[in-house]
């Protein structure tokens, strides 16, 4: 027994010695991508898809895990930032993470990241299949006639869907009764069973229900028309030009590495990301799943996130839904 213990100690100590000789080119071991949102959601799905593609252009594998909890994914972001900034731990993030600071989840801004944006699914507004409203104009007119009575579903306060609803209200002077749900799936379920009269969500989320005839699409909020099954869904921004000063406000799903990582790491990842985004697999996936590809990275992506951060943070603060003043965090007004 004692012999064994001595052996184990010796083995352990020899390993300590070996750690000095660990200079290897990045990446020599598998990379871990910690998605800060739950499995099966948009951010998780996109990250799994893109990581599988990036693996083809890297000498190592990428393992995707989920690190959820906190507010706006703060638990996962803190976890990744606490890992060494050697590029072996990435964070799978989305536009919804930008509110983590004003909601009290952490005390950092999005500029701690070096982001890569894969894209997002265009947002839209739909009503139950049997609804009396057949166009956005009819709906807006009804809401103006009876302000704050038409229940409108969107996922939680401060989500991109909620902010789009607010933008719609601001741009059309209509007032709805916002009913928050925990995510898009229950929000759509509520629209289908008639608990609410309209729902804001992404094309990717709503497509199966529209295709199945359970929801009726009214308008796109992304600034571009779309077509489902040969039917064109009009663009809200051209119907109501006043919306243009608030919209589009679109999803930005992707991943990030700590900004303090070395240039070497950033270059390797950028290279693999660019190649992956140019691949047929990604464009086919985006097409099949109703996503629009962005491909922004580095400075350009940082600017996108900075803009989102300022819009989200200040909107939430003005609504009284934020706990930390964006001023104290140094977030500029939009």
């Amino acid at each position: 027994m004692k012999k064994f213990t001595a052996l184990a100690v010796a083995a352990a100590l020899s390993m300590v010695g070996a750690s000095a000789a660990q200079a290897q080119e990045y990446p020599f071991r598998d990379i871990t991508n910690a998605v800060v949102w739950g499995a099966g959601g948009g951010t998780d799905t996109i990250n799994r898809m893109v990581m599988a593609e990036m693996e083809k252009f890297l000498p190592v594998g990428i393992s995707v895990i989920n690190q959820t909890g906190g507010v706006a994914g703060s638990n996962g972001m803190i976890y990744v930032l606490n890992q060494p900034d050697d590029g072996y731990t990435l964070a799978g993030i989305s536009e919804s993470n930008v509110t983590a600071a004003v909601q009290g989840g952490w005390d950092k801004r999005m500029n701690v990241w070096f982001p890569f944006i894969v894209g997002g699914s265009p947002l839209m507004i739909s009503v139950p299949a049997g609804s009396q409203y057949n166009s956005l104009e009819e709906l807006v007119a009804a809401a103006k006639a009876a302000p704050e009575t038409i229940p409108a579903a969107a996922s939680g306060s401060g989500s991109i869907h909620h902010l789009n609803l607010l933008a719609l209200e601001n741009g059309t002077d209509a007032k709805f009764r916002f009913v928050p749900y925990q995510g898009s799936a229950p929000a759509m379920e509520a629209a289908v069973n008639g608990e609410v009269q309209l729902v804001i969500g992404s094309l990717a989320e709503q497509f199966p229900l529209i295709d199945g005839g359970k929801l009726k699409p009214l308008a796109m909020l992304s600034g571009q028309e779309a077509s489902i099954g040969g039917k064109t869904i009009p663009d809200a921004l051209s119907e109501f030009p006043s919306l243009k000063q608030y919209l589009p406000l679109s999803q930005s799903i992707g991943f990030a590495v700590a900004n303090s990582a070395s240039d070497d790491v950033k270059n390797v990842l950028s290279e693999a990301f660019t190649q992956a985004m140019a691949s047929d697999t990604v464009s086919k996936w985006a097409n099949d799943n109703h996503y629009v590809i962005s491909g922004q990275m580095g400075d350009a992506a940082s600017q996108t996130f900075a803009k989102l951060e300022s819009v989200f943070a200040w909107t939430l603060w003005d609504l009284g839904a934020a706990t930390v003043d964006p001023e104290t965090l140094g977030i500029p007004k939009p």
Binding site: T68, G69, V71, I78, Q103, G104, W106
Partner: peptide, 17 residues
């Protein structure tokens, strides 16, 4: 779940979820 009001987290950000 409705208003995103923090409740009983006693300053521990993880508990927000």
């Amino acid at each position: 779940p409705l208003l995103s009001e923090p409740r009983y987290t006693f300053g521990w950000a993880y508990l927000l979820s």
